[in-house]
Design a protein around this nucleic acid. Structure first.
Lengths: 311, 311
DNA sequence: ACATATACTTGACTAAGTCAACTAAATGGC
DNA sequence: GCCATTTAGTTGACTTAGTCAAGTATATGT
């Protein structure tokens, strides 16, 4: 659903530079560990065995990218030294699940400690905020490359938290500047709307929905009280990276449901005709175009539209 | 200058998980390239030679983490196949600078293309915003681990851009919530102030400064017009990660200089007594405490202060 | 029941990397 | 200016790590 484009040259070069950099980085870390009696590959195998249960030889070969024959011999050696033991799986006599023995765990401990200490030393050179940034960045890389397919929970709705409105202002400002060339006055408008929303928030008549996905805010919408009959839907937005998941539709549905429950008669909203995908959502939800007017805002000539939904 | 602490267990585990993940990732990428006539190490050597000039054998061994003897033989083989040539350095007869020949460059080209294509394929699976996040995250990791010491330009001041005010609202909201336990009404206040600032911005009397460091906004300050005699300094802030660089002091100096140049008589500001490090900056700049008053705001009992500087 | 696929093993092999001993030139101390 | 020490690079002898193909035993699909 997401639109894919050809990556730019700078991006490709940056990724390649990172690969080279990290190849070296891993090389450095490995050097330190090679003082032990285990080779790097052996250490990797031990690590997997120490941290996961019920592994078979095939699992190990696949996950570590090892040759089956090589691994077979390696495991035989471990078995000979009583570091691992195999238990045949009842359901399949070809396979056996491999586990560290007590001795194997003891042999692995110093190795594990060594790697732990190395990483500690690495992190110790950084300040705490830097450590946080490092870990966050690594997790981002891992998540994006891990190709963890779609996350199990594609997204979740939650109420407003501190930091959200600033983030939404930031993202909306940038997004509409990039996509439609709007100037900074749009961002300022969003800031004023949201500042006022929080300041005069009335839980009896008003509500906000924040969409979070893998820890990131990817969408939001607000319902504000205009009169006891009329509510206004404001600032519907979905991050480009999260489009196609039905988030926009879901947010509008939440608004409509909320307004019905609160006894509003009309849900109104203002938008601009250039925002075509938003319009499709409003139409699908049953909104009717009430009126249009040309205006010059955000550095552009636009056509503003008021849409209403009778509840 | 930065304070260092012992990294937490989760952070260490996250880094180790990333190392294991990326070891595998690099393994996968390398597999693809091993179809060529060159081994992985040979390819790495060729890459370095193709991208950097005046390398000596020692440079290569150090930067790629190779054994000197192994590299020596490897280079001899390349030389025999006319892929590289060595030129003795005049200043030091022991060393020679190694470079790819025309043939070497030709031999490297398909290898380079292969790696390029692989990375392209990798990136192609992601949407453009995801690609951007990936590249940014990789650069962050590289910068933090590369130990590139302090950046050459510790920070730079620039005018406001689209996205800045949202970002500042976001960060200030989070920061004051974390450090002082203030609630979301502070973030809302910042949003209102900045929304109004942009909306009614008067370049003749007003100005903003954004501090950028390695592509990130790490501080800001605003001067707003109250009357032709009185200017107000608002929303001075510096990211914790960028403290200790004199950014706060510099920002206040910029404000004072601007106000003097514009002919203001007084520069005033409002702050709270809990913000001690800010107060020190104001005192150092010559501000005098005009009055104090208790108030309950942002979910806390606070003491508000007005400070003035006669220009 | 029979062709095909999967899980692992084994033998024969090669590539990749290490280690120590060596030469030749440069550097530092006095 | 001489000599001990260091650095750059080379070479021989060696080990380790990994590959490839052929094999056995079991499971799976039709």
């Amino acid at each position: 659903m997401t639109i894919h484009h050809h990556p730019g040259k700078e991006r490709i070069d940056a990724v390649r530079a990172f690969n080279r950099f990290y190849t070296r980085q891993i090389g450095l870390l490995d050097e330190g560990l090679l003082k032990s009696t285990f080779s790097l590959t052996e250490a990797r195998v031990l690590y997997e065995l120490a941290h996961r249960d019920g592994l078979t030889a095939t699992d190990l070969a696949r996950d570590l990218g090892l040759d089956a024959g090589y691994l077979s011999r390696l495991l035989k050696k471990f078995e000979g030294r009583d570091l691992v033991e195999r238990a045949t799986i009842e359901a399949d006599a070809r396979r056996s699940s491999i586990a560290l023995t007590q001795a194997g765990q003891q042999a692995f401990a110093p190795l594990n400690q060594g790697s732990h200490d190395q990483v500690t030393a690495l992190l110790d050179r950084l300040s705490v905020p830097e450590q946080d940034r490092l870990v966050k960045a690594m997790q981002t890389v891992q998540r994006l490359l891990g190709g963890s397919a779609e996350p199990k929970i594609p997204y979740m709705l939650r109420p407003l938290q501190v930091g959200d409105i600033g983030w939404i202002i930031h993202r909306q400002g940038l997004l509409y500047a990039q996509e439609y060339g709007w100037d900074e006055s749009y961002e300022a408008l969003v800031a004023e709307i949201l500042g006022a929303f929080v300041k005069s928030f009335d839980p009896k008549w008003e509500r906000s929905w924040i969409v979070e996905r893998e820890g990131e805010v990817v969408g939001s919408v607000f319902v504000v009280h205009q009169s006891d009959e009329v509510a206004k839907l404001r600032l519907l937005y979905v991050e480009p990276s999260a489009r196609g998941l039905g988030i926009g539709k879901r947010l509008v549905e939440e608004c409509v449901g909320f307004c019905r429950a609160k006894g509003y008669r009309t849900l109104t909203l203002w938008t601009n005709d250039v925002l075509t995908s938003a319009r499709r959502i409003y139409e699908a939800a049953g909104f009717k175009l009430a009126d249009e007017e040309r205006h010059h805002s955000f550095g552009k000539d636009l056509v503003g539209q008021n849409w209403n939904l009778e509840l």
